[in-house]
Computed example of a mutant assay.
Amino acid sequence: MDGENAIKKAYESILQHDFERAIAWFERAIALDPHCAAYHYKLSITFARSNKLDKAIGHAAQAVRLEPEDEHYSFHLQHLQARKLILHAERLFEEQDERLWLAVALLQQAVELDPLAIEAFLLLGIAYYRLEEYSSAVKAVKELLKLDPQHAIGKRLLKDYDLKWKQYMNKG
């Protein structure tokens, strides 16, 4: 069996919603042709869909190493790295508010890696609001709404945060 046949088997497994079997077939394709960036990329996508983010990032990075000029591979890697930063930041929300500044730093990194990361802008807005940085909270939610003008939570938060910002400014 060659790599392409293993890839076909992987896609058949995906169509049957057997992602573990698909992963095994993608890994077989890579074993047959370890220098094929596309195989690493495809496995990375399947790992990401299976919430195995570290493995997904590893294979995405390998695809980029093998074909650094391929923008799809680079964007995919950046998207996964941003997702990991967002997940880390989310965990910080459950801790003391002093940790929110670290969450803000992680979320800023995430939006630099993936400027389309709606969830990062949402969390950034919430973090800034909790830190009483109302102007920054409004700005983050406005960025979210540029990406998704119909985002219901974003629209509600913008209204609330804008009101809080105005109240804050009138106190001074």
Rank of each mutant, 00 (worst) to 15 (best):
Arg99Ser: 13
Gln81Asp: 08
Leu92Pro: 11
Leu106Cys: 11
Pro34Val: 07
Phe26Val: 02
Ala24Cys: 03
His76Phe: 15
Asp54Glu: 14
Ala60Val: 10
Leu77His: 09
Leu116Cys: 08
Phe47Asn: 10
Ala127His: 04
Gly125Ala: 14
Glu133Tyr: 05
Glu20Ser: 15
Ala89Glu: 05
Ala82Trp: 08
Arg130Lys: 15
Glu98Phe: 00
Leu107Asp: 08
Glu132Met: 03
Leu123His: 13
Ala48Ile: 02
Gly58Asp: 14
Ala10Ser: 11
Asp97His: 01
Trp101Asp: 05
Arg83His: 13
Leu144Ile: 11
Gln167Asn: 08
Leu15Pro: 02
Leu43Arg: 09
Gly58Tyr: 12
Tyr73His: 14
Ala38Asn: 07
Cys36Ala: 10
Thr46Ser: 01
His79Phe: 12
Lys166Asp: 05
Leu124Val: 10
Ser135Cys: 12
Gln96Leu: 02
Ser74Asp: 05
Leu163Ser: 00
Lys139Pro: 05
Tyr73Leu: 08
His40Arg: 00
Leu102Val: 05
Asn51Arg: 10
Glu67Asn: 14
Tyr73Thr: 09
Leu87Lys: 15
Val111Glu: 05
Ile45Val: 15
Ser44Ala: 13
Glu94Thr: 14
Ala37Pro: 01
Phe47Met: 15
Leu116Gly: 09
Lys42Met: 08
Glu95Asn: 03
Ala82Phe: 12
Leu113Asn: 09
Arg49Trp: 04
Leu107Tyr: 03
Ala117Leu: 04
His72Leu: 13
His79Asp: 08
Gln16Asn: 09
Leu113Trp: 07
Pro149Leu: 00
Lys164Ala: 06
Met1Leu: 07
Ala6Gln: 07
Leu15Thr: 10
Gln167Glu: 14
His59Lys: 02
Glu143Ile: 00
Ala31Trp: 02
Lys55His: 11
Met1Thr: 14
Gln78Cys: 15
Ile23Thr: 07
Lys159Cys: 08
Arg28Ile: 05
Ala56Met: 09
Asp148Ala: 14
Ala103Pro: 10
Ala56Leu: 11
Gly125Val: 14
Phe47Ile: 03
Arg21Asn: 11
Ala6Pro: 09
Lys9Met: 00
Gln81Thr: 02
His79Val: 12
Gln167Pro: 02
Asp114Gln: 06
His79Ile: 06
Pro68His: 06
Leu87Val: 04
Asn5Trp: 05
Lys142Thr: 06
Ala127Cys: 06
Ala37Met: 04
Lys55Pro: 00
Gln167Ile: 07
Tyr161Thr: 11
Val111Lys: 12
Pro149Gln: 10
Lys164Phe: 05
His72Asp: 14
Leu100Phe: 11
Ser136Asn: 06
Ile23Lys: 02
Leu123Arg: 13
Ala10Val: 04
Ala22Val: 01
Leu123Ile: 03
Ile23Glu: 08
Pro149Asp: 04
Leu92Gly: 12
Ile153Asp: 03
Pro149Phe: 12
Glu143Ser: 07
His72Ser: 11
Gly154Thr: 08
